[in-house]
Design a binder for these strands. Structure first.
Length: 225
DNA sequence: CCCTGATTCGC
DNA sequence: GCGAATCAGG
């Protein structure tokens, strides 16, 4: 197997979504867990909670089962004392600029740096100008098929090949599974999803207190089978 | 033992 | 660039 665009994209999404390397490897198929990790590193997207980081600093304690390195680096002993490093940084300022965040998304206040709200979409999401579309977090698919309101049967599923600019690309189910398909409804003009799924994809940022408890698990989280 | 990610290094 | 082998921690 080779790393095609699609596979890399899938790897990236799942990796960032918190899936384990094993899950990703299984999902992609044809690659090992190590291959996934190696690729992830090469893509530059490591760094995420690993069970064996922090103390696992093993610069070069190699018992040399394989190749041994022999490159004594000429360490320059010339240490004059060039780094006083004043660093007066840490200005506590406990509650400096807290509130202001809660209001700027849901309020039509003439805030200068918040994205311009052009209109409010039918789903309740905020429609923004094309230029200031801040990347919404998740095209995260639902964990289970929900009775969105689709056709009664699974007969006419929207497959990957059926996708175009005018139908909703919201994924239903998990890729690779027999009944995986896409929503297929007519899109909300200007968006990749239908009105209903726009409401899910572009959640209006609620004030801190009134935040919904269940943050959407990206990519369905752990497999459910 | 199982799992996890990180790293190395021959290919 | 790729990934098996290896390591190290939970």
């Amino acid at each position: 197997m080779s790393w095609t665009e699609e596979r890399i994209e899938k790897l990236t999404k799942m990796w960032e979504g918190g899936s384990t390397a094993s899950q990703i490897a299984e999902e992609l198929g044809g690659v090992s867990r190590n291959a996934v990790i190696g690729k992830a590193h090469r893509l530059g997207l490591k760094a995420r909670p690993s069970p064996v980081k922090e103390k696992a600093a093993k610069p070069k304690p190699k018992p040399a089962p394989k190749k041994a390195e022999a490159a004594p680096k000429p360490e320059a002993p010339a240490r004059a004392a060039p780094a006083p490093a004043p660093a007066p940084a840490a200005r506590p300022t406990p509650a400096a600029a807290p509130q202001q965040r809660a209001a700027d998304t849901a309020s039509p206040a003439p805030s200068s740096n918040s994205p311009r709200i052009v209109s409010v979409g039918p789903g309740g999401f905020l429609r923004q100008g094309p230029g200031d579309q801040q990347s919404p977090i998740p095209p995260a698919p639902p964990r289970r098929l929900v009775p969105a309101k689709p056709s009664p049967e699974i007969a006419d599923k929207t497959s990957l090949l059926d996708l175009n600019d005018r139908i909703c690309r919201w994924p239903m189910g998990h890729p690779g599974e027999p009944d995986f398909h896409f929503c297929g409804d007519k899109v909300n003009p200007g968006f990749p999803y239908c009105v209903e799924h726009c409401g899910r994809a572009y959640q209006a940022q609620l004030p801190r207190g009134a935040r919904r408890p269940p943050p959407p698990l990206p990519f369905g989280g752990p497999r459910v089978r």
